[in-house]
């Protein structure tokens, strides 16, 4: 279904949703935007031409969460998290796509993560398409786009005084119940906006044979070159919407087993109990980060594990840029594999 949502009606709509849902949307926190639950008053709908600092993956995989609580005398019980039905509003299509990618890890046929599953089931995602290209993003390069519709309940297209709302699920239709249906002219107008946005995104690098090139040059000094100035902090991975590595730790003083975000860029990530570290330096760690996104995800689910949100580019403290790294990778030698 396609609806029309007047911009001035939006604050009231968000408040109406609050009766039945926790509503999360980007709000100002210090000098950036952050997904926070909507309060009763003072709604500002932020329309910055780039996404929040922390990606909305944090709404499904919190930075720290308790998995198990230990009781006295050796017993334990699984932690319970009270998760209310919620609407995540104005997330960007790259971030929504990332959540779908993460499903392939957290919701596998044999094993699924109960916390992730519950949060996913209780969440309605209403994305805001990007009608203005953002500065460092490269969504079209990796096969997605500013109006990528994968894994959304609804998508908004900014058309000046109003939004076109496209709904893709019954739950989302209910959310926009009572709003006027969009005419065909308006839908065509929106399509043009979407197409223009798509065309405005520059191609950052070629993806053809990229996987083979990275794979076949595992031992190349290319990795030394691109990791040379890397500081080894966790900015690129923690702010990445598709990075999901975690560490499980027993916080004995609190008698809890917790799951914390972890990063393959940290020395301690791959450090083994024996003291041996199979990824001893930033060279191997950088190779892991890039290869995971551009080789291993493809091996596992046949999708590039990067949605082109551009956060790692924008916030790297030393200006390292994955676009430039992959452009350099394009000149690596490789042989065409003849897979049967």
């Amino acid at each position: 279904m396609n609806f029309i949502l007047e911009k001035q009606a939006l604050p009231d709509l968000l408040q109406t949703w609050r009766a039945n849902f926790d509503v999360y949307l980007p709000q100002n926190l210090e000098r950036f935007t952050h997904f926070m639950p909507l309060a009763a008053e003072g709604v500002t709908v932020i329309n910055e031409p780039h996404n929040t600092r922390i990606p909305p993956k944090a709404l499904f995989l919190p930075m720290t969460e308790t998995l198990v609580k230990f009781t006295r005398f050796g017993g334990y019980e699984n932690a319970k998290h009270e998760i209310e039905p919620r609407i995540v509003f104005a997330l960007r299509p790259c971030d929504a796509q990332a959540v779908q990618l993460l499903d392939t890890s957290f919701l596998q046929v044999k094993y699924s993560d109960p916390f992730w599953l519950e949060r996913r089931e209780k969440t309605i995602t209403v994305a805001l398409g990007c009608h203005e290209p953002c500065d460092n993003g490269f969504c079209t390069t990796v096969g997605y786009g500013p109006f990528n519709k994968a894994d959304l309940d609804a998508m908004l297209t900014d058309l000046g005084d109003f939004y076109l709302v496209e709904t893709f699920s019954e739950a989302a239709e209910t959310c926009f119940n009572g709003f006027a249906n969009a005419s065909e002219t308006i839908c065509v107008q929106a399509l043009e906006v979407q197409q223009r946005a798509h065309d405005q995104m520059p191609v950052a690098f070629e993806t053809e044979n990229l996987k083979e090139k990275l794979e076949q040059n595992f031992s190349s000094n290319y990795w030394d070159k691109v990791s040379l100035s890397c500081l080894g902090c966790g900015v690129c991975t923690f702010l990445c919407p598709t990075c999901f590595c975690f560490d499980i730790v027993d916080e004995t003083q609190r008698r809890e087993r917790v799951r914390n975000w972890d990063s393959c860029m940290f020395r301690t990530y791959s450090l083994e109990a024996s003291g041996h570290n199979p990824r001893p330096s930033r060279v191997e760690r950088t190779r892991q980060r890039l290869s995971h996104k551009y080789v291993y995800w493809l091996d596992q689910v046949n999708q590039i594990g990067c949605t082109g949100c551009g956060r790692c580019v924008r916030y790297c403290p030393v200006g390292l840029d994955i676009r430039s790294m992959l452009r350099q990778a394009q000149s690596l030698p490789f042989e065409v594999s003849h897979a049967s």
Binding site: I54, G234, V235, F266, T268, P317
Partner: peptide
């Protein structure tokens, strides 16, 4: 978010093993 960018950017944080690790 405990990404330790502050630590890595600091010339004086050169410990082989930081206390948090």
């Amino acid at each position: 978010i405990r990404c330790y960018a502050c630590r890595e950017a600091c010339p004086m944080c050169y410990c082989t093993e930081c206390f948090v690790d």
